[in-house]
Design a protein around this nucleic acid. Structure first.
Lengths: 205, 205
DNA sequence: CCTTAATGTTAATCTTATTCACATTAAATG
DNA sequence: CATTTAATGTGAATAAGATTAACATTAAGG
């Protein structure tokens, strides 16, 4: 761990801080970690972070990036485990999303937190939200496999994402089964997605 | 405004603080108001709030309650403007939701913010989330009107709520039309809801 | 009246973010 | 290689804001 460099200059403080922040967020399940503690965990003084991030929000933004990427990776992994054109792959994407929201509670909420301005360029968008594109491709394949290749898969993906995201966030707020304790997120989502696909792409669902 | 009471005792500080906090939240579009400013706006010292709320989170909880009630009221108003059993009423409920999310940005996010523990009792739930029950009733009427009264309208309502909530929150995060700029939240929601109803309740949609 | 609980007040405390002036080092340059 | 310079750290303020403590005022009831 202690590399050849002197101790005064960290060498990769920016990333060390991102990781430290991520760990604190995971540990406490909150975004209220202190800059000082993150700095300490990265082995530097409390003022050091400001050489790399204008303020706490910027550090959070970097962690957010990480979280979004992380979800994208899981999504890609899930997609790769199912045959193209199958509905199972699509449904599993949703399960992966719900699972991520549960396992990385604080990360998940950070992702959608007041993203302030945010000027995402075209390229930026694609590489950041790779998970979305993975879904789009699954849907394209599904539509083609069902003889309906002309469907707007971006719109379809957005609809499915909304359903999934809605369930994930309502579950996080402990509201998904507020009135009906028997409701199970995954089953509910599957049902919604199947119905949407059946009604949009064709009777096969 | 200056009532008969002496000036030392406010008379209704608790509510005054809730309102002051709500105003600051609306004004700044953020939950980061200071207790001191809320207190000042209510005409008392910075320490006074602690006679009524254990901490800032408790004050926020009270404002959250207000916001949820507010949405419920709008939902009820919308529902009352449409004939029972019509799909229009159901669709309009969604529009009301999206509109509220836009007009009361900070309130809306506060509503789902880390609600911590939250121990909602049966009664509590019903009176708090009245908007949900309004939707359930609209759906019941719709199912009956379409000759399908045995459908689980709690589940159906949860599905529609999820779709709506998902779109509202993704829009708030500026993600709803990240890839396809032409997507319009209301239209997207209408389409999802219509498809779900058609596929669940019957061909009429 | 007199007591007491409730509700306010002012003056600390404490925690954190953030900035400032100075120190140290890596890198580039002659 | 010696020197200059920009980058990156440090410790010591500064400031904002939440929360608490000790004391003041008042409403209400016996």
């Amino acid at each position: 761990m202690t590399d050849a460099r002197s101790n005064y200059h960290h060498g990769d403080l920016r990333n060390a801080l991102i990781i430290a922040a991520a760990e604190l967020i995971e540990r406490d399940g909150t975004l209220d970690f202190s800059m000082a503690e993150a700095a300490a965990n990265a082995g530097v003084s409390a003022a050091a972070p400001y050489r790399h991030f204008a303020d706490k929000e910027e550090l959070l933004k970097a962690v957010r990036q990480l979280a979004i990427l992380g979800l994208g990776v899981e999504a890609a992994k899930t997609a790769s485990q199912h045959p193209a054109g199958s509905i199972e792959g699509i449904l599993e994407m949703g399960h992966t999303y719900l699972s991520y929201a549960r396992k990385k509670r604080a990360f998940f909420s950070l992702m959608w937190d007041d993203r302030g301005d945010i000027e995402e360029t075209r390229e930026n968008v694609a590489e950041n939200h790779g998970g979305f594109m993975v879904l789009v491709n699954l849907l394209k394949a599904f539509c083609e496999a069902n003889g309906n290749p002309s469907i707007n898969s971006l719109q379809l993906a957005t609809q499915i994402w909304s359903m999934t995201h809605g369930i994930a966030t309502l579950e996080a707020s402990q509201l998904i089964n507020l009135f009906d304790r028997s409701i199970e997120p995954e089953a509910l989502l599957d049902h919604s997605v199947r119905t949407l696909l059946a009604g949009t792409v064709g009777p096969r669902g």
